[in-house]
Amino acid sequence: MIPDLVVLLIGAFAFLAAATGIGRAIAWKYDPNQSNPTIQNLNARINAWWGMVIVLGIALLAGHTGVILLFAFLSFAALREFMTLTTKNRADHWSLLAAFFVVLPAQYYLIWIEWYGLYSIFIPVYVFLLLPIFTVLRGEEKDFLIRISETQFALMICVFCASHVPALLSLNIPEFDGRNILLIAWLVIVVQISDVLQYVWGKLCGKTKIAPRISPSKTWEGFVGGILSATLIGTMLFWLTPFSPLFAFAMALACTLMGFFGGLVLSAIKRDRGIKDWGHLISGHGGFIDRLDSVVFAAPVFFHLTRFGWT
């Protein structure tokens, strides 16, 4: 497992070094006085990618514990961004505290002990029923359905779905012992490279907007080019996975499509709330949810397809 992971990380760094070189060259040639926001943003994004790849690389090398801690933290950061925008009032204080400090740690603990039977229904069933009970005891009916629904949606996206990335470690895939961490690497690479390539194809030849009201930057050209090229990369990386090249192609297509629509769904929420980015902590990208939106939509589907077909 480790040799493949090291090869992968070296490849990722080489890729980033190339991207950094290209980004700097574009800035040097077309934007010598650093005034073009698109080029500035491109380089800020590439710089942030170094940080993200290094953090993810350390977590993957650290194995089980590292990946679970990383995703627990990412869930926390994402939930904080999401809850900032949900409808709530003073009567929700203890429910919100429970979401952050009980539900989130409990979900990741269940992932840690690999209790599939409970972690796969804990938030959709138990939290879904118990948290509104907890809320209703405070006796505040104003906006009640909106409040409990938005809180539940936030938990589903930011905790339940995100936790399905580390949950991949608990799958028992025959003749794939000890290599599950590579499944995580494969999923993250395919989905993220799809976002990057959609952005690149969109900037190069994007004309026809897919959903101008929801996401002005998403174009058909970016969508088709990004999804196809990322799926191709996923297929070529089949050696990381238990899949044959053909199945790797199908899986990559499913993941990139889910990722695309995840971005679209979360964009619609942003538009409705009148914000451009979920947060401000990842320079050039916005918030954690801006970077994770595609991964959280792809992860549970990828998890269950793999579980259904390969365990």
Partner: peptide
């Protein structure tokens, strides 16, 4: 923005919002 939701009057533990 938001501080009254992070820590409403009379509460002790803050909800981590931005």
């Amino acid at each position: 923005e938001n501080l009254n939701k992070i820590m409403p009057k009379g509460e002790v533990i803050p909800v981590p919002l931005i």
